[in-house]
Each structure stands twice: as structure tokens, then as C-alpha cells.
Design a protein around this nucleic acid. Structure first.
Lengths: 220, 220
DNA sequence: TTGTCGGCCGATCGCCGACAA
DNA sequence: TTGTCGGCGATCGGCCGACAA
């Protein structure tokens, strides 16, 4: 059995035990399922997670998981949650360090630049050569699809501040970001940089969905 | 019973009689239909057209019809085609006059203009005031959805020629037209102008489908 | 008659420091 | 420290006649 989960809560890892609620699953689909017409189904089923697949909506970048479950004998008393909900804090292991910022009007609309909070620039981005004038570098980040994005990172102005300039506007347009949306910068174990987005909850308006155009490069 | 028809042949009008081929319909869908497992179905069914609905793909502007049929007693000899295929020439009634042109590179790519063949400008478009210098007017045309498009129509250059300038580039981009596609200008009974498009048969390439953004205005 | 080209002008994009919150 | 603004230079879109097919 497989189920799709929008990631709003903690994840489940392989071999952990979870409880599956058939009625909840049925209510999630928009079709009516008449359990009365089927053989008796228990209200909850103890399962083991045998596979977790991480997926991302190619249009909105919304991420979700596909989790494969197998029921295990409903032996109530062996339900000790060995790996279930723990070990998932953002930095309990010290490895993936991240920084999130909600886009301002200036980030989303004006001159096509992104004002990088100092903490983000200094802890996530590669270190600038501050002896240069101005200090500037090209930063490459990968999104959830593995596509790479290139930004010009410069440290300038009076007082000095970190900015993303060239390339940022293209990213905003391709991802259709607006003020209020958030971006997350993430440095993973091997030093690579990743970027994720979280959209504001405001609906799509009356214009309806439009799918984005295909992006250019992709990497593993 | 309803069937969808891509309009590659002559249309059928209400009350005309047609022959419906169930096997052909089944082959048109990509699913396999096992007629052997169903009650015997005759290879062809004489039907009467009771409703014709004209539709257009909101993305590609491809037009098609949805035709509602009711079977009539298969009395072979009353199958005289009273209204079936006649009366559908483009100008047999003299009313809808049209002109088609295949887009050149210059029409699709360059400076955003469209070179209007003289015959088209003089027979389809509203007459210009040739005493003005240069003669210029705004032309409004409706597409298959009823959406209105505004073009600047000017008569200039040496030697003089008709051109669509402002507004044309926007049309090309919104409709995703490329050189080789065709446009059709049409003047309908009440004098309104319509514009249709026919795309070249070259596939979509590897970039995949992208849906167009929502258009602006719409009229009945 | 009309397809293509280069010139050219104006609009827009986007980089910049000033300034203030 | 960083969000917003006006300035301004570079780029691009798109209107134009010249020219030739």
C-alpha cells in the first residue's frame, strides 16, 4: 500500500512503525469510498515503512513523499517507536545548515536584486575575498530538482551589505516568486549549496494555473 | 452518444444523418475495448445528429466539435443525405470572407511586425483613410475564444505596403507562433474581424508542453 | 508586391549608492 | 543591519525605410 503525504509534519524513516488510518486516506481523496460495501476494515492499521520516496512538484516545487507501508501483525504491545519521530531536528546532527528569508518587495520586484542577510552570507555562502574591491563571486545553488542556478554575489554599498544581483531576477521570474514567499539556502555535507522555496498561502487568483517553462540545466 | 471530432473534414449539421463506427471510436481512444466481451455491436450505426458543439482548446486554439448522435432505425433506403456535406464551401454563400497567410521569419521573429498582403488588407480589413500621412488605424480582431486583440495597421514604406505593428508581437508571443504557422483573417457577417491560427506540424521538441498564461479580455 | 536587413530611438531592466528605519 | 528609493547606463524591443527577390 502506498500513500502520498504533504510534508507538514515530521518525516518517517524506513523501518519505523506508523499507524495508517484508512478512513483518513479515503477522506483525502475526493471520491467517496463506501467502506460499508467492502469487507470489514479496521479503523487503524499498524504498519512498517519499507520505502520512502522524496518527490517534488515540477511546477510549484512543492515537496512531498510517497511512503510504502506493509501491515504488521497488530501486536499492540510491540509498538515502541524506535525510530519514528526522533532524530529529525534541523541541526541535531550538525550537518545541514540552512537559512530562510521571506522575500521583501525589493527582493521580489525592484531592480532584480536580493538583499542577503549578513548571517546567511557569512555562514552559508562560500567566503568572499574581502581584499577585492568590491568583493564579488559567482554562487551556484541547486533547487529541489537538481537544476543549478547561478547568482552574482557582491558585497558593496555604504554601509556594506551582501547582495545577489545578476541571475536573481531570472530565478524570481522562473519560479514565479512574489513578495511574501520564502527562500531557504542550505549547505549540505559536501559543501554544495541548495535553494528551496516556500510560497505564501494566498490563492492563485482568477488567472488560473500556468505551468512554468522548462528549465535549463540539471545535475544529479 | 457523443463523439469528439477533430475538424479535418466537412462538418455535420444538426438533423443530418451520419454513420457511426463504434470500432473506429474505440481505436481512437488509447484504451483497449474488448467488444467481444460485450453484447454484439454492429460495425456501423446509422445516426441522426441532434447537437453540434463547437469547442476550442484553450491552450493551442485547436478547434474541434462535440457531436451528439441518436441512432435511428437502420432503414438503409432512407439514407438520403439531405443536409450532410453540402453548403459548406468557404464562400458559397458569399458571407464569410477570409484570407490565410503562412508566417515568414520576419513575421514571427523580427521587429515584431506582420507584413499584410495587399489583398488581405484591402478585402478584409476596414478601409484606411488614404488621405492621412501615413494612413493608420487600429484593428480589433477576435480569436476563437472571443478574446479581442488590438493591432496597429499602418500603410507606409517605399514602396508602400500594409503592416501590422504595435500589438502583433504580443499576439505572436501569447499564441506561441513560429515561422511556418499560419494565421487566418476572417470578416464575418456583422463586419467583425476574427483571427485564427493553424500550427505547423513539427512536434513540440523536447521542452515539453507549456501552457500559455491567461489572456486578458474576453467578449461574447 | 513583399521578405529581409541594418539603423535608430525609446522603454525597460537591473546595478548602484544614498538614506533612513 | 537592511528595506526602499531615485539615478543612470546598458540592453532590448520594435518602428522605420532601403533594397532586392
Amino acid at each position: 500500500m502506498a500513500c502520498l503525504c504533504r510534508m507538514h509534519g515530521p518525516n518517517s524513516s524506513v523501518n519505523s512503525k506508523v499507524v495508517y488510518f484508512p478512513q483518513g486516506h479515503a477522506e483525502h481523496t475526493l471520491t467517496n469510498v463506501d467502506f460499508g460495501a467492502l469487507p470489514r476494515i479496521p479503523p487503524l492499521i499498524l504498519c512498517r515503512v519499507v520505502a520512502v520516496k522524496y518527490l517534488a512538484d515540477p511546477e510549484t516545487d512543492e515537496v512531498y513523499t510517497k511512503i510504502r507501508l506493509i501491515p504488521i501483525g497488530n501486536n499492540k504491545d510491540n509498538f515502541d517507536d524506535d525510530e519514528g519521530l526522533g532524530s529529525n531536528g534541523s541541526e541535531s546532527n550538525g550537518k545541514p545548515i540552512s537559512f530562510a528569508k521571506t522575500l521583501t518587495q525589493s527582493d521580489a520586484n525592484n531592480g532584480g536584486g536580493f538583499s542577503v542577510p549578513r548571517y546567511c552570507a557569512e555562514t552559508i555562502f562560500p567566503r568572499l575575498d574581502y581584499t577585492a574591491d568590491p568583493p564579488v563571486q559567482t554562487v551556484i545553488v541547486k533547487d529541489v530538482h537538481g537544476d543549478a542556478w547561478k547568482f552574482r554575489h557582491i558585497y558593496r554599498g555604504t554601509p556594506r551589505r551582501h547582495l545577489l544581483t545578476t541571475g536573481w531576477s531570472n530565478f524570481v521570474n522562473q519560479k514565479k516568486l512574489v513578495a511574501g514567499d520564502s527562500v531557504v539556502f542550505l549547505r549540505v555535507e559536501n559543501g554544495d549549496l541548495c535553494i528551496g522555496i516556500r510560497r505564501t498561502k494566498k490563492g492563485w487568483g482568477i488567472a488560473g494555473h500556468e505551468s512554468s517553462s522548462g528549465w535549463n540545466s540539471n545535475c544529479a
